[in-house]
Amino acid sequence: MALAFTLPDTSGTSVSLHEDGAAAAVVVFTCNHCPYALAWHERLQDVARDYADRGVRFLQINSNNAEKYPRDSVDAMRARVDAGEFAGPYLVDSSQEVARAWGATVTPDVFVTDATGVVYRGAPDGDYNDPSLRAEWLRAALDDVLAGRPVAAAETKPVGCSIKWR
């Protein structure tokens, strides 16, 4: 899998996967309109905030075809960022190359990486309708990585809306 990427954020600034020597990076393929992505959104932002000072980089990527899905346009993404809805960069994958390289299939599709590559892939937790779960699967994977342990549950089934391919 080709992990490295550089994508623009909603202001056009280039952001790379590997910057600042982070111990781990979370990459979430998400979007503006999918009910699953919206249901998990706040839990994911909480993880980004809770782990920011622990050496975890948190990147969210919209790879949907914005021509067919205008709610996923850069302008619509920027409006959400400007409204303070994202705890970290919200990146534009207009070519869809990064989503394809990573094998992302749904929104949200969550990946955790460390120096060895992808160590977790799947859903944030077991039920998009239950905020009390607090993205527990993602948190457990990050806790394992930060403690230097192998991730106990390295894969769960990602649940969400299909990525809207060109």
Rank of each mutant, 00 (worst) to 15 (best):
Q60S: 14
T116M: 00
G126A: 14
A83W: 07
R57D: 06
L138Y: 09
V74T: 01
M77R: 12
I163W: 08
M1K: 03
Q60T: 14
V28P: 05
V119I: 03
V106D: 02
W102P: 06
D9P: 11
E67I: 04
D109M: 02
G88D: 07
R100S: 05
E19K: 06
V110A: 10
N129S: 14
C31K: 04
H18Y: 02
V145G: 10
V98N: 02
G148T: 13
A104H: 03
D20R: 10
L91P: 03
D125I: 06
T30K: 12
A154K: 12
R43E: 15
Y36A: 10
V92N: 02
A79H: 07
H18K: 03
V151W: 11
W102F: 15
G21V: 06
A22L: 04
A39C: 05
E155A: 15
N65P: 12
S16W: 12
A24T: 02
T105R: 07
L133C: 07
A152S: 11
G160F: 09
E42L: 11
E42S: 14
T30F: 13
V106I: 02
Y69P: 00
L146R: 10
G160S: 10
L44E: 14
R80I: 03
A52S: 13
T13V: 14
S63V: 00
I61G: 11
V106S: 02
A2N: 13
T156R: 03
E19S: 11
T113F: 11
D130W: 01
S132Q: 09
W102C: 08
S162R: 08
D75Y: 05
V15Y: 01
G122N: 06
V74W: 00
V119E: 03
H33I: 09
F58P: 09
R71W: 01
A25C: 07
H41F: 08
E85H: 13
C34Y: 08
P70Q: 06
V92W: 02
A101G: 15
R134L: 03
R134D: 09
D75G: 11
V119Y: 05
P35A: 10
V28I: 14
P8Q: 08
D114A: 12
V112F: 04
Q96S: 03
L138S: 09
R43T: 15
S162C: 12
A2P: 13
A140H: 08
Q60N: 05
V56H: 09
L3H: 13
A22Q: 08
G148C: 14
H41Q: 11
L138K: 09
V112E: 04
D144I: 05
Y51N: 10
V110Y: 13
R166G: 07
S73W: 00
C161F: 11
W137T: 05
G122F: 07
A104N: 04
A101N: 15
F86H: 06
A104V: 02
I61N: 11
D46G: 01
P131D: 14
